[in-house]
Amino acid sequence: MSILQDANREQISRRRKIDWILHILFIAATAVGILALMALLVNIMMDGLSRLSPDLFTNYPSRMASKAGLKSAIVGSIYMVLIMTPISFILGVGAAIYLEEYANKNWLTRLIQLNISTLAGVPSIVYGILGLTIFVRGMHLERSLLSGALTMTLLVLPIIIVSAQEALRAVPRQRRDASFALGATRWQTVSGSVLPSAMPGIMTGVILALSRAIGETAPLVMIGALTFVAFLPNGIMDSFTVMPIQIFNWISRPQEAFHELAAAGIILLLGLLLIMNFAAILLRNKYSKNL
């Protein structure tokens, strides 16, 4: 008798059946997520595509839907990102470098670590309350672009720190040893050997954190970003609005035309997030090739 013939056929066919059923179930689970996303996208496209015109970029908000646009909101979002990117990059990467490369691993650093990881999951509205207390009232920055950007910096900081730490940790120890063994100081090792290897990973984290900030509404509502701004901010102390706040405002109006405008704004926002995530993926691919 062949050694391939003595198997327990009944048991095997049962195992195959289980395998097949689970296969179908997993496909169904995936399909639910994808279908929901598709429905959302189709719905928004149908509402918003007709309103996606140059006017949307060049018009200020208006009481008349036909004249309303996102100009001040788009510019506000761009300014906010421009202010918060360097601040959150320097603070976030600096903290990550301290924790990974300089700090002794003791109970204090473990406590700090636990805190940062927890902060990364705190609801965004809490950061709004914090921003209101510290920046708007405490430091008398009022409801300015600067207050908004600093609040958003607090929001993304834990995310940037955690992802930068992961990127630093992924740099093999041998690369640090090679540098130290040549007589490098700690900073020379970090800047000459560790950071160049970790930078694509750090950038990926920063981009993903910024794309979260661009879509955030709650903390800015909390610190009082205006919903009707018919001018461009003239400086960092000016009042401002951002895209998700304008969208939120349009959606809460009764007229159908404003809902269409909101949908157009959402398409714009989704497009922006898509581009940023795509850039992050490109960076990550480059990263895995270099290692």
Binding site: P172, D177, A178, L291
Partner: peptide
């Protein structure tokens, strides 16, 4: 100077 067990050039 030191040379390690695994070759460890910088990228």
């Amino acid at each position: 100077g030191m040379v390690f067990q695994q070759p460890n050039p910088f990228p």
